[in-house]
Amino acid sequence: MLHIVNKSAAERSSLESCLRMATKGSAVLLIEDAVYAATNGNAAAAKIQAAAADLKIYALGPDLAARGMAGRVLDGVNVVDYGGFVDLVAEHSNCQSWL
């Protein structure tokens, strides 16, 4: 399953709820304001790094770049473009947007 999160972890609980319910081996894609969680020094970074042991974590590159965060991505987070976003949706049998 692909989980999509679009809200800053500093503002909403959606990342936390997602990580709580994502089963081992599933993928989590951070887009829009959620990408901040996947950057060095962010308060949510530890959560992402811990989750990366069981889940595949992705972040949308254009959203990172648009926020000046392209150079700060955590190790273990895979950066994808929109094509990669489409591939992730296609590769997983279902998806859930944590709005």
Binding site: M1, R20, M21, A22, T23, S26, S93, N94, C95, Q96, S97, W98, L99
Partner: peptide
Amino acid sequence: SVDEMANLMAEQDVVISF
């Protein structure tokens, strides 16, 4: 439980969240 919820979600064809 959270595990039961996670498994239920994983087996869906379509998940729409509001």
